[in-house]
């Protein structure tokens, strides 16, 4: 009911190619996250799927039917915008009812769906308020409610959580994930936050400069990043990337090792360094360690109780099985 296929889709604004020829298959019921830095074309890609932008070339197929030239309203997709795009002069009830009113649904059915959506999203008490009287999280839920009542083939989310404060964001993240398990509808979600991508996605699409860098499940991307870009982008804190002697002796141009795959010890280990800034999170401590002959500090995760301080000498032991090796072209070596 909600399989979306992109075939050689491109988009250019004037002379600028925003999306380079791109193929992607989104299966029915999947939660797909587009993630990438600002300006990588992830929002444009979503808008192409929604039909808010025309493709420059290529085909968009929704449920087996060519939807490239179908107007947005007829594609059976619902979108949640970054600014929520609620209609400020309408009450919450009317906001949620609007797509059904446009579709000409009868009143009883409209009310049934509104009540159901409001109950699911904890909005029942706010139905007669206007968006201006709601908090950010409530507005977000109204926007989702407006999308749900259309019973769309797929939901499109355009950075829906970026206007919320950190605590609310974690809560809404869970709510959207729960919604997905309950509705089992395809969801396409755009974010620049790789934590959101890792926690919510069935499938992550990493984009950079209008190209797909890698497609895969969160753990695939974490375990086997296809290239340097994905290696640096997925994971928090970022993977340490080392060039020079350490890479050469492992037969690579660049090697990557995640902070959590380096053991820190006060007395033994192959790499010796000086502790710089240390970030204590309680459960973990992240040390930024300076190693002689390297400009970039290496980030190391240690247990929260390890007591090493600024200026102390530290010895690091990388887990050899979890070192990622990259060739001169930035691609992963087998």
């Amino acid at each position: 009911m909600g399989a979306i296929t992109l075939e050689k889709v491109t988009k250019s604004f004037g002379d600028v190619d925003v999306i380079h020829p791109l193929d992607l298959r989104i299966e029915d019921g999947e939660f797909v996250v587009f993630v990438g830095p600002s300006g990588c074309g992830k929002s444009t890609l979503l808008r192409l799927i929604a039909g808010l932008e025309d493709t420059s070339s290529g085909r968009i197929v929704i449920d087996g039917a060519d939807a490239t030239d179908v107007p947005p309203a007829k594609r059976g997709l619902a979108m949640v915008f970054q600014s929520y795009a609620l209609y400020p002069h309408m009450t919450v009830r009317k906001n949620i009812a609007f797509p059904m009113r446009m579709a000409g649904l009868d009143k009883a059915e409209q009310n049934r769906r509104i009540e159901a959506a409001a109950a699911a999203l904890n909005l029942t008490d706010y139905l007669d308020r206007r968006p201006g009287q709601l908090s950010g999280g409530q507005r977000q839920r109204v926007a989702i409610g407006r999308a749900i009542v259309r019973e769309p083939a797929a939901f499109l989310f355009d950075e829906p959580l970026s206007n919320l404060d950190a605590a609310l964001r974690v809560g809404m993240r869970l709510e959207i994930s729960e919604l997905h398990t309950r509705l089992k509808t395809t969801m396409v979600y755009v974010t620049h936050d790789q934590v959101e991508a890792m926690t919510m996605a069935d499938k992550i699409v990493v984009l950079s400069a209008g190209r797909i860098e890698q497609v895969g499940s969160p753990l695939d991307l974490y375990r086997e990043p296809r290239n340097l870009f994905v290696a640096g982008f997925i994971g928090s804190p970022k993977m340490n990337l080392l060039t020079g002697a350490a890479a050469a002796e492992r037969g690579a141009t660049t090697i990557g090792i995640r902070p959590e795959h380096i053991a820190a010890s006060p007395d033994t280990g192959p790499w010796r360094g000086i502790v710089g800034v240390s970030e204590h999170l309680g459960s973990d401590t992240f040390f930024h360690v300076r190693i002689e002959g390297r400009d970039e500090p290496i980030t190391v995760r240690a247990d929260g109780e390890v007591s090493l301080h600024h200026g102390d000498t530290i010895y690091l032991t990388p887990d050899e099985n979890r070192i990622h090796r990259f060739g001169p072209d930035g691609l992963r070596l087998a």
């Binding site: 039909g51 808010l52 107007p71 997709l77 209609y87 609007f98 446009m102």
Partner: peptide, 13 residues
Amino acid sequence: DSEQLEAAEMDGA
């Protein structure tokens, strides 16, 4: 807000 118009367009207006 242009997003409002786009939302309305998606909503079938």
